[in-house]
């Protein structure tokens, strides 16, 4: 699975260095847009200054400017609340230092991302896309050559993928991946059934309503498209339910475990990419059930609906995995060699 926020990470270079107040403002807006800072969360200067490695002055100015723009507002307590003033909005106190800040906002110092991060997403996507089609050997040397990085960097990245259960070492210590089996799909869905339902229970109270209505709208649009829905929309709907809705969860370990078990989603992505006549209505209906309950504040029912969706998705995945057996082997980067 790709890191959900990898797309918002962008290295800051010396040439585009901005005033500190602006960096702080952008950072906070990024966090709001990414759904990490939710309406009602309390913002105080100290932790933000620590997290951004700045003095308090530019933070104070940034908060003041954001309040003028109605992005945040003063309240009875110390600091500001995220969002415009609203009746009955209760302050939510969280330790901003412990939040999973997007990389670009972690520090104000211009520092390029580690090379392994930059290539990891690409390599991970390439491996994930082929493992339903068999066993592949992975060449450290070829990856290094392709990306012009050292073997150490490649190895570090592959060890991370090993930790995520995507690659492993065979008895001769070669890196290998695949094949994705029905058994593995069933196991991962079972784990997700437990974890995602629990994660949604914790995250649900902090979900932004407008974000949920956006998701609902996307589901309605997707349903109207029928079989013309397309792979991009399918990916977006999966991201909406299985990443965005769980995002307010402040349990990094659980989030990481969930991501490690979302490997079988590749089966549905491949289906959407290669078999345009497939009917995705059941999946859309199941997603709609979860989102409707969330919007209505029926969190227990939403969790139940999510579990039911994952149970049905298990069966769908196993049926679809069978079909992949007759599709031709996909093209793959030079560092992957199919061996069965």
């Amino acid at each position: 699975m790709s890191e959900p926020h990898a797309s918002v990470a962008r290295p800051v270079t010396l040439s585009n260095r901005k005033p500190r107040k602006q960096v702080a403002m952008d950072s906070l807006i990024d966090l709001m847009n990414a759904g990490q800072l939710l309406p009602g969360m309390v913002l105080v200067e100290g932790p933000i200054a620590d997290r951004l490695g700045m003095s308090r002055m530019p933070i104070r100015e940034a908060l003041k400017a954001l309040a003028e723009n109605k992005k945040i507002h003063r309240f009875d307590g110390r600091g500001y609340l995220v969002g415009p003033p609203k009746k009955n909005l209760k302050p939510i106190r969280v330790d901003l230092r412990n939040m999973d800040w997007p990389n670009a906002t972690v520090r104000n110092q211009p520092k390029p991302l580690p090379a392994s991060n930059q290539i990891a997403t690409e390599v991970q996507a390439a491996i994930t896309a082929v493992i339903p089609f068999g066993c592949y050997r992975i060449s450290e040397a070829e990856i290094g050559e392709m990306y012009t990085v050292s073997r150490t960097v490649v190895r570090e990245m592959l060890y991370r993928l090993q930790h995520q259960g995507i690659v492993e070492k065979d008895r001769w210590s070669h890196w290998v991946a695949g094949p994705l089996t029905a058994q593995k799909c069933a196991e991962q869905y079972q784990i997700r059934g437990v974890l995602e339902a629990e994660a949604l229970r914790s995250a649900a109270p902090y979900l932004d309503r407008s974000k949920l209505t956006d998701i609902q709208q996307r589901l309605v649009s997707a349903a109207s498209l029928g079989t013309a829905i397309g792979a991009k929309n399918i990916r977006q709907l999966e991201e909406d339910l299985h990443v965005t809705c769980l995002h307010p969860l402040r349990n990094g370990s659980m989030q990481s475990l969930i991501r490690q078990n979302q490997l079988p989603l590749i089966v549905h992505h491949l289906f959407a990419d290669q078999l345009p006549r497939v009917n995705h209505d059941p999946m859309i209906t199941e997603h709609q059930a979860v989102i409707s309950h969330l919007i209505a504040g029926q969190f227990d029912q939403a969790c139940l609906a999510l579990r039911e969706h994952l149970q049905r998705a298990t069966k769908r995945t196993i049926e679809r995995l069978k079909v992949l057996s007759v599709l031709p082997l996909p093209s793959h980067p030079i560092y992957l060699t199919p061996f069965h």
């Binding site: 068999g134 094949p179 089996t181 029905a182 069978k322 069965h340």
Partner: peptide
């Protein structure tokens, strides 16, 4: 039958 592990069977069969 198309077994649940049909995809795996076809890969192992190649072996």
């Amino acid at each position: 039958s198309i077994m649940n592990e049909h995809n795996y069977v076809t890969r192992k069969w190649n072996e």
